[in-house]
Amino acid sequence: MKQKKAQWPWHVLTVLVLVGLAGALYYATSLMSYEWRWNRVPQYFAYQAEETQRATDISTVSELVRQGGSAQVTLRNDAGDEQHLTVDENSLQFAQGDDVAEGDVVGVTRHWAAGPLLWGLWTTLWLSLVSGVLGLLIGLATGLCRLSSNPTLRDLSTIYVELVRGTPLLVQIFIFYFFIGTVMNLSREFAGIAALSLFTGAYVAEIIRSGVQSIARGQNEAARSLGLSAGQSMRHVVLPQAFKRVLPPLAGQFISLVKDTSLVSVIAITELLKSGREVITTSFSPFEILFCVAGLYLLINLPLSKIASRLERRLAQSD
């Protein structure tokens, strides 16, 4: 009989190893007298932006209503025209009846604003999403072309896949930037998305092709013998089964894509990595910021692999 051994001592050991590694890192940075300043980090996620409110004319404060931390100020000039302002109460510069000159600051309003790291995260997210969807469509079409009986379609799709897979993504991004940017005069985001989705498309094409080929020939034959056309057999019988098999590699491809979006920082798209590097130049806290950037990539990718494995389990119910 197989004895069930307790697992928890091993998990404790795992935690000890991780703590040890963190300690070693801390020690190494203290040797180079690095000063950890995590308290500086939050402002780069979100901060209180201030907006100054100014008087537009020479006038007097005719009315002042304080209400729940904010103040409503009414200014009246000689001609009797009124200007209404709302400012934060503790920033108020004038009292009832005071004279105000043109351009004087009456007070400020404060509101939360997203910092550069959040903006970078957002850019990375939508770049990944758009390139992922386009890459999936391109890959599906190309993968089916690879399997087509038409030699031209087969040749063209093979050339595309081999060209893209055989050259570095960084080179492709530059080519697209200079080609689309200068020749077609479109934005850098357009160039970045084009490069990323064509790159993803080539890999997705290979995943789809091998997935379709892994479905036994008898499945297609059974469908065709029932009178389904080649397209109907593909759509109803082969692709749904292939999809289940390609889900893990597809998820891996999309996770790669999210990480690869960091490469478009070289054509000055301010995505997560570039935002981080900009923040470092002002904060002088490279380790904290880079750890945050890495953490944010993880924040996207961990749920992605979670969703993929859950989908996989759902689809496995017919096995």
Partner: peptide
């Protein structure tokens, strides 16, 4: 080998 559609 029957060739039933396993996903249905």
């Amino acid at each position: 080998h029957f060739n039933l559609f396993p996903h249905m």
